[in-house]
Design a protein around this nucleic acid. Structure first.
Length: 107
DNA sequence: AGGCTGACGCGCT
DNA sequence: TAGCGCGCCAGCC
């Protein structure tokens, strides 16, 4: 365990991810920024341990691809939610972050 | 107080 | 364009 399950950090991260509507995505860095921190990896850790309770596939890396080893699962969700994808026909697809990126405040 | 670990991010070669 | 390394942050030993 590298992060406290009852930590406000975890609670906030999960809350933000859970607030991301279908078809929209956020990067770990963005979530961390909302928390007022630059710990993008910390956010990723929270997701890895507690992301099971939230739409983790709506949280992607800065490059536009979902977490490693989880691209296939995420792809299924994207196709289901209609998330804008780029080169979805190619094996190394990526999310159209420019269009799908979402802000918790609706900014 | 110091060191280690990560679903990350960006720059350099 | 692909591969590699270093930096950041939060938690635990």
């Amino acid at each position: 365990m590298r992060i406290a399950p009852d930590s406000p950090f975890v609670t906030h991260v999960l809350d933000i991810v859970d607030s991301i509507p279908p078809g929209r995505v956020m990067t770990y860095g963005d979530v961390a920024a909302v928390l007022g921190s630059r710990g993008a990896r910390v956010v990723g850790q929270v997701m890895s341990h507690y992301g099971s309770d939230v739409p983790w596939w709506r949280v992607i890396r800065a490059g536009g691809h979902p977490p490693v080893e989880h691209e296939a699962r995420a792809l299924a969700h994207y196709r289901t939610e209609g998330t804008p994808l780029l080169n979805a026909l190619a094996p190394g697809y990526r999310v159209d972050y420019a269009m799908a990126r979402w802000s918790p405040g609706g900014a």
